[in-house]
Design a protein around this nucleic acid. Structure first.
Length: 452
RNA sequence: GGCGACGUAGCCAAGUGGUAAGGCAGAGGACUGCAAAUCCUCUAUUCCCCGGUUCGAAUCCGGGCGUCGCCUCCA
C-alpha cells in the first residue's frame, strides 16, 4: 500500500518514496527547554510518534530524531536569572519532558542536544561563508538571504512582499533586514563557545540543519514540526542547508496545526496553556492521546476540557469492549477492520478517520457479542481492536483480568450466592469487592471483574 | 498590508463530484434480581451566505461574511 502525505513545500499530496529503500528517516523539531512544556507542544510529538508507529507497522525501518534546543535567548535568560549554568537549567526541563513523554507513550528516538554540536555548527557556518552565503560582522555571522535564490520556496512568501509590515530586528551588523543570525556574539564566558569570530553561541536555526544532517544524512525523508515553525525556522533551515548539500534537506515537510484555546493558539505568551502534568492528574494518558489524534493533524484542534472529557468517555468504550472480548476469546491472526484502518493512515495520516474505523469495529464487536458469535469470529475483533489501539498508543491499561486469591474467592462466593438466589448475600460480596476496588459485572457467560 | 488555512448536528470531528463516517451529550425502546455493559431507533432533507459550472456539488469556480495561523527565537 502506498503512503501519501501532504508536503507543505509543494502544497500537494505526495507518495512517500524513501531515499533509502525500506527505511524512513524523520526529523522533528523538538522543544526549546527553558520551561515546562504544555499540551500544545505535545500535540506535535504525539502526532509524529504515531506516524513513526504507523511507518514501522507498514514495514519500514524508521530512524527518528527529535532534538532539544538547549541554547537560545530564553534558556540563557532563565539560567542567568536563577544563577545556574545553562546545562543545569536545560537538564531540568529535559527531565520534565522525559517524564511527560514517557507517560504519553512517546517511543524511542534519537534526541540530540544543540549544545553538543557546536563545533559542527561552526564548521557548517564556515562553509557557508566560504560559499558566499554568509558574512561575519561584529563577532556575529549572518546568512545572506539574497544569496539564496530559493528563499521563500517553503512558506511561499514572494520576495518583494516579505518585508511588508514586518518588524525587523534592529541589528546594525546585518547587510539586509531579512538576513538571520547563524552565530551570535556573546561576551559572557558562561554562555558562550569559542569560535573563529570570537566568543558566541549558535543562532536559532542552525542546530536543526546540523543535527539532522549528522544523524540522518541529506536528504532525509520527512521533516516535521508545528506550522508555526514554517516561517522563518524551516525556511531558514532550507536556506542554510541547501548550499552545502546542493539539494533541499528534506523530501517532505509535514506541519501539524495548532492546538487552540478559546479560539486562539495555545502558547505561553498568551498564558492559555495546560501543562501536561496537570492534565495527567485528571486524564489517563491514553485519553489524552485519543484526544490529540481525534482531529486531522493539519487542522487546528480546540483544547477544551469538554473535548478531553469526551475522549475519556470514548476510551471507556474501548476498555469495555476489550474486557468483554478478553473474557471469552483470544486474538486471532486475522484482524477485523485493520486494513481499512491502515488505509486511512496511508491517506495523509488521517487519524480522525482511522478512529472512525476503530469505533465502527468496536460496535461490530459488541453486536457480535450480543448475538452470541463464536470465539474465532470474536477473536478477529479482539485482534483488530488491539492492533488499532496499539498503533495509536491508546490501549487501555486497566482491562487485565489478573488473578488474586482473595478476589477470586469473593467472586466465586458471590456467584454461588447468586446461584442460590440469595441476592442479599450476593450484594454483600459485591460491596466487599467494591471496597477492594473491584467491579463485578454479570454476563451470560458468568461474572467477570476488573479493578476500577 | 502580504502569505496560508479553515467555516459540516447541542459539542468534538471525518468526508474534496454521486446523494452526509465516527465519538460525546440527549430522547425512546430492548436486555437485566440489583448494578454495569451492550444493542436498536431517533436527533444535519443538509454542510457560513449569494451566484455559477454540471445530469448531479458539502465537495469545482467567482464574490461576500466570519474565524485562525505565519510574516516577532511560539510545537
Amino acid at each position: 500500500m502506498s503512503i501519501r502525505v501532504h508536503n507543505t513545500q509543494s502544497g500537494e499530496l505526495e507518495t512517500l518514496t524513501p531515499v533509502h529503500p525500506g527505511e524512513v528517516r524523520i526529523y522533528v523539531c523538538g522543544p526549546t527547554v527553558y520551561d515546562e512544556l504544555h499540551i500544545g507542544n505535545f500535540r506535535c510529538f504525539v502526532i509524529f510518534d504515531t506516524l513513526a508507529r504507523f511507518l514501522r507497522q507498514s514495514g519500514y525501518q524508521v530512524t527518528k530524531v527529535q532534538n532539544f534546543t538547549d541554547v537560545d535567548d530564553r534558556t540563557i535568560a532563565s539560567a542567568k536569572a536563577e544563577g545556574i549554568s545553562l546545562r543545569q537549567l536545560t537538564d531540568r526541563y529535559i527531565d520534565l519532558y522525559h517524564r511527560d513523554a514517557a507517560r504519553l507513550g512517546i517511543g524511542e528516538q534519537i534526541e540530540p542536544r544543540a549544545t553538543d554540536y557546536v563545533p559542527e555548527m561552526i564548521v557548517h557556518i564556515e562553509q557557508l561563508i566560504a560559499l558566499g552565503h554568509a558574512y561575519a560582522a561584529d563577532g556575529s555571522v549572518y546568512f545572506s538571504v539574497r544569496s539564496f535564490a530559493g528563499y521563500g520556496q517553503l512558506s511561499h512568501q514572494p520576495a518583494d512582499e516579505r518585508q511588508a509590515g514586518t518588524r525587523v530586528e534592529l541589528d546594525p551588523g546585518k547587510q539586509a533586514p531579512e538576513d538571520f543570525a547563524l552565530w551570535k556574539h556573546e561576551p559572557d564566558p558562561n554562555f558562550s563557545w569559542p569560535s573563529p569570530w570570537g566568543p558566541g553561541r549558535p543562532g536559532w536555526h542552525i542546530e536543526c540543519s546540523v543535527m539532522s544532517a549528522h544523524h540522518l544524512g541529506v536528504p532525509f525523508d520527512i521533516h516535521g514540526g508545528g506550522v508555526d515553525l514554517l516561517f522563518p525556522h524551516h525556511e531558514n533551515e532550507i536556506a542554510q542547508s541547501t548550499p552545502l548539500a546542493h539539494e533541499s534537506p528534506a523530501r517532505i515537510w509535514m506541519h501539524n496545526g495548532m492546538l487552540t484555546m478559546s479560539g486562539e493558539k495555545m502558547s505561553k505568551s498568551l498564558k492559555n496553556t495546560f501543562r501536561v502534568s496537570d492534565l495527567l492528574d485528571r486524564y489517563a494518558p491514553e485519553a489524552i492521546r485519543l484526544f490529540l489524534l481525534s482531529a486531522h493533524y493539519r487542522s487546528p484542534l480546540a483544547a477544551e476540557l469538554e473535548g478531553l472529557d469526551q475522549a475519556k468517555a470514548a476510551l471507556r468504550r474501548i476498555e469495555n469492549v476489550l474486557r468483554r472480548l478478553r473474557h471469552v476469546t483470544v486474538p486471532t491472526e486475522q484482524k477485523e477492520g485493520w486494513d481499512r484502518f491502515l488505509a486511512c493512515l496511508a491517506d495523509d495520516f488521517n487519524t480522525a478517520e482511522a478512529q472512525g474505523v476503530l469505533f465502527e469495529t468496536v460496535r461490530g464487536a459488541n453486536t457480535a457479542l450480543d448475538h452470541g458469535a463464536k470465539a474465532p469470529a470474536l477473536g478477529r475483533y479482539l485482534a483488530g481492536i488491539e492492533a488499532m489501539t496499539e498503533l495509536l498508543g491508546v490501549t487501555p491499561q486497566n482491562t487485565e483480568l489478573n488473578a488474586d486469591d482473595e478476589i477470586a474467592l469473593l467472586v466465586a462466593a458471590r456467584e454461588s450466592a447468586r446461584q442460590g438466589r440469595d441476592f442479599a448475600l450476593a450484594d454483600q460480596f459485591r460491596q466487599q469487592l467494591k471496597e477492594l476496588g473491584v467491579v463485578v459485572e454479570d454476563t451470560s457467560q458468568g461474572s467477570r471483574w476488573y479493578r476500577a
